[in-house]
Write a protein that binds this DNA or RNA. Structure first.
Lengths: 217, 217
DNA sequence: AGAAAAAATTTACACTGGAAATATGGAGGA
DNA sequence: TCCTCCATATTTCCAGTGTAAATTTTTTCT
C-alpha cells in the first residue's frame, strides 16, 4: 500500500523527468510548438507514458507552470532577504519579478495563460498565490499603503502588480524594445514612479474616488 | 492587369470573409483551439482555399490581429473625442483600453502574442503603433509629463502602458477576480493613482535615478 | 474565341493528442 | 520460492491539424 517509497520503477522518476524535459523544450521551441510526443521522446518513453502521471498535455503544462511559480517566487524572495523592509525591498522584488520573466519568457507566458492549464488545480493555485503573496506582503508594509488610501490595500496591490506584470509582458512580446544585451530600457523599480498619492490627487480626478464598483466610464 | 476591381469571384470576397469567420471562431473556441480548417469550413470553402489570400494560418492570425488593433484604437479614440485634453481624456482612453480587452479577451491575447504572428508584417506593425499612439499622444499632453521628469517621456509612456496593459491581462486571465457581472473591481482610471512625481520621490529611492541603463539591481 | 492568370479543390503527407487493449516488471503475500 | 496483483509503459488505432503539390474551375485580358 505504502505510496511514499514508490520510486525507481522502469524509468526512475518519470514524472519529474517529464517536467524537466518539458521545461527544456518549452524555452527551446516555444509554448505554441510544444509537443507531448517530443517531450516523451526526449525522456525516452512512448508518447502515452505521461498519461500515468499527468492528465494529458494540459496536466503536464499545469505541473510545469507550478514549478515556474515556485522559481518565480524564489527569484523575488532573494530580494526580500537581501534588503530591509521598505522601498528598497519592494524594488528588489519587482526587479526579481521582471528578471524572471525575461530569463524564462516562455515559462512566464505559460504561467499566465490559464487556457493552457488544468482548471481547478490546487497545486498551481497555491504556487501562484504564494508567488503573488511575496509582492503583496511587501506592499502592505509600505507606509503609503494606508487603510485610508483611496481604494484601500487591494487597489495598491493590483496597481503595483499590474504595472510590473504589464511591463514584463510588453518586454517579452517585444512591444517595448530592449537594449542590445537584452536588458530592459528601465529597471522595474525605475519604471515605477513614486507610488504615493499626490496631494492634488483628488483635484486631478474629474470626480472623487468612491468605492470599488463600475466598469464603464 | 488591374488589381483593384478583382472582386466577386467564386466566393465574393473570401479574404474578408475568412477574417470575419476567424474572429467569430476566435472568441467562441479560444485562441488555442482555433483551426484553419474549421474557419474555412464555416465560410464554406476547402481548407486550402485560404492559402490564396494568406500566408498560412499565421498569415490569417496576423490579419485578424491587425483588425483587432484597429478596433482597439477606435475604442480608445471614442474617449479622446468625448473628453477635453487632460486627465479626463486619459481616463477615458485607459478605460477604453481595458474595456476592449475584457470584451474581446481572445482577440486581445492574440494581438499581444507575437509568436502567433507573421514576423515583419507591416500592416500589423502600423496598426499596433497607431493604437499605442493614441495613448502616447494623450500622455504627452499632460502637464506632469515634463521633459525634466526622471526618465523623460518614454518612461512615462511605458509606465502608463504597462499599468493599463498589465491590469487588462491580469483581469482576462482571472488573476484579478471580477464582479459577478464581469466588470473589473476598479475602473482603469481608478487603478491608476496620481501619476505625478512625488516631492519626496528621490528620497524614497535608495539611489537617485540616473538614466536608461542597467537591468539588474 | 482563345490564352493567361487567378481561385479553389482534390489528394497526399507528416504531424498532433487521446483512447483502448496489451505487455512488462516490481511488490507483497502464500 | 512461487505467484498473484497492479502500477507502469507500450503498441495500435483514430480523428484531427497545417501544409505542399497537382489539378480543376472560373474569371479576366488580348
Amino acid at each position: 500500500m505504502l505510496k511514499k517509497n514508490r520510486k525507481k520503477f522502469h524509468h526512475g522518476d518519470l514524472k519529474a523527468a517529464l517536467i524537466a524535459a518539458g521545461l527544456e523544450e518549452l524555452e527551446e521551441k516555444g509554448l505554441e510548438s510544444l509537443s507531448l510526443r517530443s517531450i516523451a521522446a526526449r525522456v525516452g518513453v512512448s508518447h502515452t507514458a505521461p498519461k500515468n502521471h499527468f492528465d494529458g498535455l494540459r496536466g503536464l503544462l499545469t505541473a510545469m507552470a507550478t514549478v515556474g511559480f515556485e522559481q518565480h517566487a524564489a527569484e523575488m524572495q532573494k530580494g526580500v532577504e537581501d534588503h530591509p523592509p521598505g522601498k528598497s525591498r519592494l524594488d528588489a522584488a519587482c526587479n526579481g519579478y521582471v528578471r524572471f520573466a525575461l530569463e524564462n519568457p516562455e515559462l512566464f507566458k505559460l504561467m499566465f495563460s490559464s487556457s493552457f492549464h488544468l482548471a481547478d488545480d490546487q497545486a498551481l493555485k497555491q504556487a501562484g498565490w504564494a508567488s503573488y503573496g511575496i509582492l503583496r506582503n511587501i506592499a502592505h508594509g509600505l507606509d503609503w499603503d494606508k487603510a485610508e488610501a483611496p481604494g484601500g490595500p487591494w487597489r495598491t496591490e493590483w496597481m503595483l502588480w499590474s504595472l510590473v506584470h504589464g511591463y514584463a509582458m510588453l518586454l517579452i512580446d517585444g512591444e517595448i524594445r530592449r537594449e542590445e544585451d537584452g536588458s530592459p530600457p528601465f529597471r522595474a523599480d525605475e519604471i515605477m514612479p513614486g507610488f504615493g498619492y499626490l496631494p492634488n490627487f483628488n483635484e486631478m480626478r474629474p470626480e472623487p474616488f468612491q468605492g470599488q464598483r463600475r466598469s464603464d466610464d
